[in-house]
C-alpha cells in the first residue's frame, strides 16, 4: 500500500522565522501611511481650519475623546445592542428563505410558481420599501426589522437555490444506488451539499441587512446606530457621527468574521468543495 503518500498536502512551508521585533516592525510598517494621514488630518483641523469648519471636521484626538465619552456612558453600547437585536430578529425571520430556497432548487413545481414572484420582488432595493413600511408598521422596531429582513432574505434565498441546483449530479446518483429514498436524498445529501453556499448566503445577507438597517434607522427609529448618527447631525456633533460610522463599519466586519469562522468550524470539509 502506498498510502501515506500525498498526505502532507496542505502543509505549506513556513517562511523563515523572523525575529519578534522584525515581525512587529513589518506589521507596523503597514500602518505608516495611515499614521501620516491621521497626523495631517489633526494638523489641518487644528491649525488650518477656522473654528466653524473645525466643527465639521474635528481632529482625530477629539474624535477619540468623543468615542470614550460614548463608550463610558454606555450610550454607544445601548445603540449597538438595539441595532444588533433588530438585525438578529430580522435574520431569524429571514432564515425562512433557507427552506424556501431548498424547495425552489429541488422541486420543479415550486420553482415554477415562486420564481416569477421572487424575480419581481428581488430587484426592488430594500430601501425603496421604507416609505411603505413606515405607513404599515409606523416608526420603530417592526419597521426596521422589515427592511432588514428584505435585505437578508434575498441573498440567502438565491445562494440556497444555487447551492441546491449546483450539486454534483453524481452525488445524487451515488446516494440513489446506495439505497437512499427521495426524502433521505433531500435531507441527507441535498441540504448538506448546499450548506457551504447557504453559509455564503448568510454572510452576504447579514452584510446587506446591516446596510439596510442603518438606512432604516436613519429615518424610522428612536435608537440604534443609524439613529445615533442622524440624531448627532441635528445637534452638529460631527465627532459622534464619525464615531457612530466607525462603529457601524466595525460591527459589520465583526459579523462577517463571526459567520466566516462559524462556517469554517462547522463545515471543516467545505474547503474541499469550493475548488
Amino acid at each position: 500500500m502506498t498510502t501515506g503518500v500525498s498526505m502532507t498536502a496542505g502543509v505549506t512551508p513556513k517562511p523563515r522565522p523572523a525575529g519578534l521585533l522584525a515581525r512587529a516592525f513589518g506589521k507596523l510598517r503597514r500602518l505608516a501611511l495611515m499614521t501620516v494621514l491621521l497626523c495631517i488630518w489633526e494638523y489641518v483641523s487644528l491649525r488650518v481650519l477656522d473654528s466653524t469648519s473645525r466643527t465639521l471636521l474635528p481632529p482625530p484626538t477629539l474624535i477619540f475623546t468623543a468615542a470614550w465619552e460614548l463608550i463610558s456612558s454606555g450610550e454607544l453600547f445601548r445603540h449597538a445592542r438595539d441595532s444588533l437585536k433588530r438585525e438578529l430578529v430580522a435574520f431569524v425571520w429571514a432564515s425562512i428563505s433557507i427552506p424556501i430556497g431548498i424547495a425552489m432548487g429541488w422541486f420543479r413545481i415550486v420553482d415554477e410558481q415562486l420564481d416569477a414572484i421572487m424575480e419581481m420582488l428581488r430587484p426592488i432595493p430594500p430601501l425603496a420599501w421604507i416609505p411603505l413600511s413606515i405607513l404599515w408598521f409606523g416608526i420603530g422596531d417592526e419597521q426596521n426589522q422589515f427592511i432588514i429582513f428584505l435585505g437578508i432574505f434575498f441573498p440567502i434565498l438565491l445562494n440556497t437555490i444555487n447551492g441546491v441546483k449546483g450539486i454534483e449530479p453524481n452525488l445524487i446518483r451515488a446516494a440513489r444506488c446506495l439505497g437512499a429514498s427521495e426524502f433521505q436524498i433531500l435531507w441527507r445529501i441535498v441540504v448538506k451539499a448546499a450548506l457551504p453556499q447557504i453559509v455564503t448566503g448568510i454572510r452576504i445577507g447579514l452584510g446587506v441587512g446591516w446596510m439596510a438597517l442603518v438606512a432604516a434607522e436613519l429615518v424610522g427609529a428612536n435608537s440604534g446606530l443609524g439613529f445615533l448618527i442622524n440624531d448627532a447631525r441635528t445637534v452638529l456633533r460631527t465627532d459622534y457621527i464619525i464615531v457612530g460610522m466607525a462603529s457601524i463599519g466595525f460591527i459589520g466586519l465583526l459579523l462577517d468574521q463571526i459567520i466566516r469562522q462559524l462556517g469554517r468550524r462547522l463545515l471543516p470539509w467545505s474547503r474541499g468543495m469550493d475548488r
Partner: peptide, 14 residues
C-alpha cells in the same frame, strides 16, 4: 446494483 463513479462521488461532508 451499486456504482463506482469515475469522479468518486464521495460525500464531502462525511
Amino acid at each position: 446494483r451499486s456504482v463506482v463513479f469515475q469522479d468518486y462521488a464521495l460525500f464531502p461532508w462525511m
